[in-house]
Design a protein around this nucleic acid. Structure first.
Lengths: 339, 339
DNA sequence: TTCGTTTCGTGAAACGTTTCATGAAATTTC
DNA sequence: GAAATTTCATGAAACGTTTCACGAAACGAA
């Protein structure tokens, strides 16, 4: 008798092979209580046939797909890359799959991805998005990173206020007298905005002279160049410390300063935000307030998979820390850490 | 009469609403030829009910899931991050979803992911893996990056040989007389190995004195430190040029050189491989041979979705280019490109 | 007008699971 | 030892699609 070869084995095949009913195989596969002798026979058959459950059939019947969609602007910003990696890790630990969607900060793209995963019946969505009025299926668990979107939608963020404060204090400790805060980004009322008030508060507490330069979403980057030039006299910058709202911005600003002939950190010290590193375990791009990407990821996954929606907290803030990255005058412990 | 609210609308609901048969709705959804007046009624009903196809039911019936699994070691190596981003882009363009799996270079993890996506019936797999004997479902299209695994499995890579040669020529052009090639990594017969022979060939052609230091998989990184120390006399390195097999390695080596007091690029010029950049549009981590991540991604997607398996080429090599990144003595066009 | 042909909408069957009412077998109870 | 109760394997129904044999309607030919 010919064995059918072309198609993958199904539960029915396993049931036939083991001489049991379909439902019994289902129970074994799902770890439900089954008589010992039955379990053994079914497991043997599964082994023999190299049976794999069809998660599409599972998903159709049970509406549990064991997959989570993750929306991020991109993967090449080291902070987003870190998040993607840690989210993948946290999901994998729970046997969940990650559907990664890069939105390029594009609100339309964001909505399209949401619609797409709606069709895909993912079990939940974790999103770091920039569309202030995303329409999300109300019965799909949704967790945001850094965007507070309402009481029903948990937001996981680092302690941005404390981070801003920490930056001010660090700059003060490092001997700065006149500092500036640079921000580019959305006008959304998002969590990272608290970096500004934390910084402001820190400056006041330490009696630091400070200025703010805040660009709106569409504004050209040149706004910063102009700002720096306005504060550049006789070959010297007015500031001896800068706090940039992200490491990415700090990096861009450093290029500007370089072209102006301003030395970092000798002439001006710079602290960024995020904790962007070069190759994961490499050194930091700049001195920075580090966001705990691993804890953020773990928390997002925990919340999105939480079965009792009522228990989901509206906002979770996780602790940040400072790290030396070469753009400040504090010497690192080991001058040049190898590996 | 009560409308059912709890569940999402199905094709049956659309059919009822539009007063047509189930099969007609299916045709409209899939863009198959349907009478104009029917199409209009169905489309109106879809609009009205906000109907979304259930891709799990689709996947079950048709075995087409419109999803591709992507296996990468991680996302925080900028080159892998770039690949992930470009793959997402290329897949999105074709309305495919990307299942991202980070394997951490772990062969077991790699196999587990393959098994996992087997259950998920993805339409194909794109993998940059390190397990020499991965077991892949023979009927799932599989495309590798950088690993030639046999005639049936297409491999997409950059022109590693030409890249190695290019590195040697560039170093020669830059005035180097004695150079070294540093490699750490798998003993697999993978495409990147050709960087060595290309480099060797280039050195011979340009009569460059060269040495090789090649570490195997498990070998400790200290092997390089020792090698460099052996070639370090009276505060000077024997070499005036180094070619590192990846930007990541170049980065590590630079840390070692820094701790030895060797100046880059004044004392020794360094060329890496990959084209790792800081924030996507930022500057390169080091002078480097750039792999065309966008073209690689596009080609992988093209091949993995190709319906005629017989036409899949076994190996595709894509052109590389050189880019200045601060670790060589060639001045960039604009000294400090802002933005 | 009539028969042959083409066009195209119809709806049942099938995809591979989960779930649950059913009843046989095992166990407990008096 | 018989009746009551519990345990647990069974297999049919259902999930929401795609596919395809079927036949009604429309059309063209003689």
């Amino acid at each position: 008798m010919m064995k059918k070869m072309s198609t993958a084995p199904t539960m029915k095949d396993v049931a036939r092979e083991a001489g049991v009913a379909l439902g019994t195989v289902s129970k074994v596969v799902n770890g439900l209580p089954v008589g010992e002798n039955y379990r053994i026979r079914v497991e043997a058959a599964i082994e023999k046939l190299d049976y794999q459950v069809n998660s599409y059939a599972q998903g159709l019947k049970s509406s549990r797909t064991y997959s989570i969609a993750v929306l991020l602007p991109n993967t090449f910003n080291p902070f987003f890359a870190d998040l993607a990696y840690q989210l993948n890790l946290a999901l994998q630990k729970r046997r969940y799959k990650m559907l990664l969607c890069c939105t390029a900060f594009n609100p339309t793209e964001e909505q399209e991805y949401i619609n797409m995963v709606r069709q895909n019946k993912v079990d939940g969505i974790i999103g770091l998005t920039y569309n202030p009025d995303l329409v999300v299926e109300p019965d799909t668990p949704y967790v945001t990173i850094d965007r507070y979107m309402g009481p029903g939608i948990p937001c996981v963020a680092s302690d941005n206020y404390a981070g801003g404060q920490m930056a001010a204090e660090k700059l003060a400790d490092l001997g700065c007298r006149k500092v500036a805060f640079l921000r580019i980004g959305s006008s959304l009322t998002n969590e990272p905005n608290k970096r500004r008030s934390g910084f402001e508060n820190g400056c006041l507490a330490r009696q630091l002279d400070y200025e703010m330069k805040i660009l709106d979403d569409g504004d050209p980057f040149d706004g910063f160049v102009d700002f720096l030039k306005e504060h550049f006299h006789n070959g010297k910058l007015d500031f001896d410390g800068l706090f940039c709202v992200t490491d990415n911005l700090a990096f861009q600003i450093m290029k500007v300063l370089e072209s102006m002939g301003v030395k970092v950190p000798e002439d001006v010290q710079i602290i960024g935000f995020d904790g962007a590193r070069m190759f994961g375990d490499g050194r930091y791009v700049c001195s920075t307030i580090v966001q705990p990407a691993d804890a953020i990821a773990e928390m997002c996954v925990e919340l999105v998979l939480m079965n009792n929606a009522a228990l989901r907290p509206p906002l979770v803030c996780l602790p940040v820390s400072y790290a030396y990255g070469g753009t400040t005058l504090d010497a690192p412990q080991a001058p040049f850490p190898v590996r």
